[in-house]
Design a protein around this nucleic acid. Structure first.
Length: 307
DNA sequence: TAAAAATGAGGAA
DNA sequence: TCCTCCTTTTTAG
């Protein structure tokens, strides 16, 4: 899936494009028709992310206290795509990549978009299975393939959020619950980092890469790690996910480990240390990177650097 | 055409 | 430990 950094970028982009506007909300595919009807014509007042969950607050135009929350989760396939006119961001897409190392798609050039007499863009016919479409003054956004897309009361949304562990991308996050939960669990740290009620927003790549960078074997039980080890893993994820938010892509290697390759170039084979690099030489020590299945997901690690 | 793969997660067994 | 759901793109036959 798009890991937490993608969802935070989505929150920012949706907020930039739509905040303060009355939106047309629809479900061209039909599977979100009831929810879309509840939101149609409301005003987007806030867009934010916690872990991999996206929260969009919609207020009634006449009553700011009357708020409904659209909560969505992309799962492993979901993605949002955007089309906007010249006053907004150009066309782009954020969500599930279809190839390893694929970056967010996006053109710097604004596409030709039609406007109505009032100056609002006229959305084009939806392509494929569009679960939800949000249309505003300067563009529209299509959501495809989410694992979850629901309309909730603010209380319901808060209850769902309360189940999530701290998010490394939240500047105000308190890592204490993560340190406590992980530190008293005998389960492997490689499993714990993916548990969203332990820590939220980390997916398969950040798990593999943060463990590599800290030299921690993924199968180490949480109880065998010191508080300093766990704090180090938290800090590592804060740093890596922050880069992900800024760049729009998961880049976890240090410059000295990708010699001769400028930042601006595509270098999927050197963007990560171990993720999807099984069978290849470790960028640091030359040992063969390993892969095994752990709870149905690929786990990648260097047996020497992470002994 | 069909199948496989992809940065999840919830629930049954 | 399975099984299932969600969608698009790429690869295989």
């Amino acid at each position: 899936m798009p890991e937490g950094h993608s969802i935070h970028r989505l929150a920012r982009q949706l907020g930039d494009l739509f905040t303060g506007q009355r939106l047309s909300v629809s479900s061209p595919q039909g599977r979100f028709s009831a929810g879309a009807q509840l939101l149609d014509g409301r005003v987007l007042t806030r867009a934010r992310a916690h872990g991999k969950h996206l929260y969009l607050d919609f207020a009634a135009p006449q009553d700011p206290q009357d708020v409904l929350v659209m909560r969505s989760h992309l799962g492993i396939y979901g993605a949002w795509s955007f089309v906007g006119d010249e006053t907004s961001a150009a066309a782009s897409s954020i969500g599930a990549p279809r190839r390893v190392g694929e970056r967010e798609s996006g053109s710097s050039q604004a596409p030709a978009v039609a406007h109505d007499d009032a100056g609002r863009v006229v959305p084009e016919a939806p392509v494929g299975a569009v679960r939800a479409r949000l249309a505003g003054e300067h563009g529209w956004a299509d959501l495809r393939g989410p694992a979850l897309c629901a309309v909730e009361t603010p209380e319901e949304a808060r209850a769902a959020e309360a189940k999530l562990g701290p998010d490394p991308l939240d500047p105000d996050a308190d890592p204490a619950p993560f340190l406590a939960k992980a530190g008293r669990s005998r389960r492997a740290i490689g499993v714990l980092l993916m548990e969203q009620d332990v820590v939220s927003g980390i997916g398969n790549i950040f798990r593999a890469e943060s463990l590599f960078r800290r030299g921690v074997n993924p199968m180490t039980p949480g109880t065998s790690l010191t508080p300093e080890d766990l704090r180090g893993l938290w800090d590592e994820n804060v740093a890596l996910m922050d880069v992900g938010v800024r760049v729009g892509r998961i880049i976890t290697t240090d410059p000295e480990d990708r010699p001769g390759i400028p930042e601006s170039e595509a270098w999927p084979e050197h963007a990560n240390y171990v993720y999807h690099r099984h069978g290849q030489d470790c960028l640091r020590c030359g040992a063969t990177v390993l892969k095994k299945d752990l709870n149905g997901r690929g786990l990648y690690w260097c047996p020497v650097c992470q002994a």
